[in-house]
């Protein structure tokens, strides 16, 4: 059983890592095609990619859109969770359902819906419209994560603070938000990740200023190139570095 387990583990990890290994390895390829035989290593494609103005502009756009849209989604989601958990309103269940609904709809459909509306009222595609779309997909996620993290001890602490004379704002910033910090961070980072990596909404709702996935997509049109490997590897390494940083700082603290 043990040997069989390790064998399966090796096989499936091989499958899972195969494309990543090939991606990173051939980003160091010397010739113009990222296919075997490997004839590197060279860093010229990285130099090439970092010097590419369009690509770097797209990267900056992606950062801006993801950081801001995630912040908006987090704020809206936090407020809504706060309102819906505190007191039972008429129609609470329906409101919760409505908030969660976009999660079950394909991004393509959300993008097409927004495109229809923006077209008909004459709003041109831009990073703003993309940001709006990204808030739509991340709001349910933020709401669900934060709502699930709000428990009874939360409510008791808030009530105690209010009884002791704290204002609503004080309760929210000094009691609720710190108690929910792990959930808030998780919701924010997940939202940033989803927005950062999102393709179809950004593809349909941007035109001249594009995000990174859309720019990479247009690189693919001109065929295989180690430059695509280089930008892909770069993004991967940065994400993994961030992931490990979070794992060993924020989420490590939360457990102790």
């Amino acid at each position: 059983m043990r040997i069989l387990s390790w064998f399966y583990l090796a096989l499936i990890f091989g499958f899972i890592f195969l494309p990543v290994v090939v991606l990173v390895l051939f980003s160091f390829q010397d010739s113009r095609l990222p296919i075997p035989p490997f004839d590197g290593p060279t860093l010229k494609w990285y130099v090439n990619v970092i010097g590419d103005r369009d690509l770097m502009a797209a990267l900056a756009n992606s950062l801006i859109v993801s950081l801001i849209s995630a912040a908006v989604a987090l704020t809206l989601g936090f407020l809504a969770a706060q309102g819906l958990s505190r007191i039972h309103l008429p129609g609470s269940v329906a409101m919760r359902g409505l908030m969660i609904a976009p999660m079950t709809v394909s991004y393509l459909i959300i993008a097409l819906g927004l495109l229809n509306v923006f077209n008909s009222i004459g709003i041109r595609p831009s990073l703003w419209t993309t940001g709006i779309g990204h808030v739509v997909i991340n709001l349910p996620l933020c709401f669900a994560i934060i709502f699930a993290a709000m428990g009874d001890h939360q409510k008791n602490a808030e009530r105690a603070a209010r009884d002791l004379g704290a204002s609503d704002m004080h309760v929210m910033f000094l009691v609720t938000a710190p108690m929910l910090m792990p959930a808030l961070l998780a919701a924010y980072f997940l939202s940033v990740t989803f927005s950062w990596d999102e393709f179809i909404i950004a593809y349909l709702l941007t035109r001249f200023d594009v995000t990174l996935p859309v720019e990479i997509w247009s690189m693919l049109r001109s065929g295989l190139s180690p430059a695509t490997n280089a930008i892909g590897s770069l993004v991967f390494l940065v994400s993994v570095a961030l992931l490990f940083l979070l794992e060993f700082t924020v989420f490590r603290k939360q457990k102790t």
Partner: peptide, 26 residues
């Protein structure tokens, strides 16, 4: 109750404006 509802309004408006209405238009 009114205050709690006030917290929910922004998210609801967003969802209606950018999800429900686009869907109806579709």
């Amino acid at each position: 109750k009114i205050r709690a509802f006030g917290f929910v309004v922004p998210a609801l408006l967003w969802t209606v404006a950018f999800f429900v209405i686009p869907f109806a238009v579709m």
